[in-house]
């Protein structure tokens, strides 16, 4: 795959505080890279460096060729006292669009974000989801090659979230490269090809989602039945109560399942559920960053 962006040894300090430390990362063209990390990990700072908003950093940031960037900020950065169309016009002009080309792009973007019927309404009358969609719309007017999305689905309803997912899918189909920062692991799994985990200003893991899951996630089984599990189950791995049953994290899931089956058979008791649990990115997130609350 052709490389679009290379970050090499990026450092960023705010006063004496180091926010990013030796960040090295490569982003290939046409992929969706998930940027994951707890609050204050340095995601937004890294995104702002890539989007050329922060320019006083140490290290190397190199694009393979001339790349148009569309930045979707975490905040809803819109002028709420004017209409959706006025906002799009404003940002379109900032990106150098004018005349017929701008008009056409505004019309396309309004359709893309599902706001064509509300184009003349003031943004302050919009729901959170509509504002989020317009927030994205303002960043894609100039048809960027790289779209950087910082927590684009915070505080919105499932319909708008679904709409944004579909938009991201369409961007990918159109060959755009996407950097997608989110707290929601299921979004990263659903949308991204690769992920980079950031904690305390460092990249603690990166690779394809599959690679990361294989490397870090321990398989587990879920058991629910009338009986408490015998102590011997601890020989297979760690056991934790969950949803009225037990989660057994084990590297021998099939053996553990066989053991549970045998146990219930001998007891002649009813086993409600016994299933293999797919490892998920959230488990990896906690194993890499811990479960301590962050500021």
């Amino acid at each position: 795959m052709t490389r679009l962006l290379t970050l090499n040894g990026i450092y960023k300090n705010y006063g004496k505080k180091t926010v990013l430390s030796n960040i090295s990362l490569q982003v290939s063209k046409g992929i969706c890279l998930g940027l994951v990390g707890p609050n204050g990990a340095g995601k937004s700072t890294l995104i702002k460096i890539i989007a050329s908003i922060i320019q006083d950093y140490r290290g190397e940031l190199r694009f393979s060729d001339s790349v148009r960037i569309g930045y979707v900020p975490q905040d809803i950065s819109l002028e709420e006292t004017v209409s959706a169309k006025d906002n799009l016009q404003f940002f379109g002009r900032l990106y150098g669009l004018s005349g017929k080309a701008l008009k056409e792009r505004i019309s396309e973007v309004l359709k893309e974000i599902g706001l064509e019927k509300r184009e003349k309404d003031k943004v302050q009358t919009f729901s959170g989801g509509m504002k989020r969609r317009l927030n994205i719309g303002c960043a894609i007017l100039h048809e960027p090659d790289l779209i950087i999305m910082d927590e684009p689905t915070v505080g919105i309803d499932p319909q708008s979230r679904q709409h944004i997912f579909q938009m991201v899918d369409r961007f990918r189909e159109a060959g755009k490269t996407i950097i997608y920062a989110s707290h929601y692991m299921e979004e990263i799994e659903r949308l991204c090809d690769e992920a980079a985990f950031i904690d305390h200003g460092k990249i603690v893991e990166n690779g394809t989602i599959q690679q990361i899951l294989q490397k870090h996630a321990v398989p587990s089984i879920f058991v629910k039945g009338g009986n408490a599990l015998p102590d011997k189950i601890n020989e297979f791995g760690s056991v934790a109560a969950k949803n009225g049953g037990y989660i057994v994290q084990t590297n021998r899931p099939l053996d553990a399942m066989e053991f549970v089956l045998q146990f219930y058979k001998e007891k002649n008791d009813q086993l409600e559920r016994l299933e293999l649990v797919q490892p998920i990115l959230e488990d990896v997130f906690f194993s890499l960053t811990g479960k301590e609350l962050r500021d």
Binding site: I53, Y71, P73, Q74, D75, I76, S77
Partner: peptide
Amino acid sequence: IGMVARIAS
């Protein structure tokens, strides 16, 4: 509201 950052991009 992040407008300065957005415009800087």
